[in-house]
Amino acid sequence: MAGGDEFYIGYQRQAPAGLSRFQRWTVAALLLAAAVVAVALAALQSDFDPGVFEFGVVRDFAGVVHERPHPLLLVDRPGHNLPEPSRFLLVAAGKHGADGEVAGLDGRRVRLRGTLIHRQGQTMVEVVAGSVEPTGDATARPAAGAVDLGVQTLRGEIVDSKCYLGVMKPGRGKPHRACATLCIRGGIPPVLRVETGSGEYRHFLLTDEAGGVINHRLLDLIAVPVEIAGRVLRTGDLLVLEIDPTTIRRLDAAAGSS
């Protein structure tokens, strides 16, 4: 047993000098080590994803609602000189889709209030509950039909679009899987994130082959590497991948078991 002859009991007011010195050095070393660990761990985190959630900022939006497959707001963007209105995905607060907010308003022009979520050209609005108000009967301009880009086989990760576009970082990968699963269960539009090389990504809204909602059939396939074959449709600035969920192939170790 090392430690010399000094003896100290915790309830004594003052430790012997030698012990005090030892304690001070020990504590100083510990604090220094903690500081080094704090800086090292903070610095070793991988870069955070882009994406912005304007938390606390509520804006007004106007456009035409599409209810299917997931609630969308078609917004004219005069400054942008685009042939088609932009398509903003609509979601509700928390981990819920906005289906209830826009029910029965398919094709109608509305006003609504909400908070912007955007990432690299993809835009979403978290709708303030009860703020959607129809302002006219007909669509101002019928939306153009979808452009069929053919059947493609894509590899990527299924994410919940809300967290991924900026509400959470990271909004993908295993640590986020539980949350993504819960979001997709709650009606948040599922999106396939596909790397197109050199750090660029494309995002495909997932529907079934009839353009219907398939959230509940994806729950075991979220936040893992997958390969999906399906028909790609482009409507305006939105890419949709129509798939048969039973053909999704997992690419990780559990490929066999799913």
């Binding site: 704090a38 903070a42 970082k169």
Partner: peptide
């Protein structure tokens, strides 16, 4: 001190980080 250092350094090095995650 640890918490402040971690959050501070994290926010400085990754301006895109969300504070909840930090």
């Amino acid at each position: 001190g640890y918490l402040a250092l971690f959050v501070g350094v994290g926010a400085m090095l990754s301006p895109r980080a969300t504070v909840e995650t930090l």
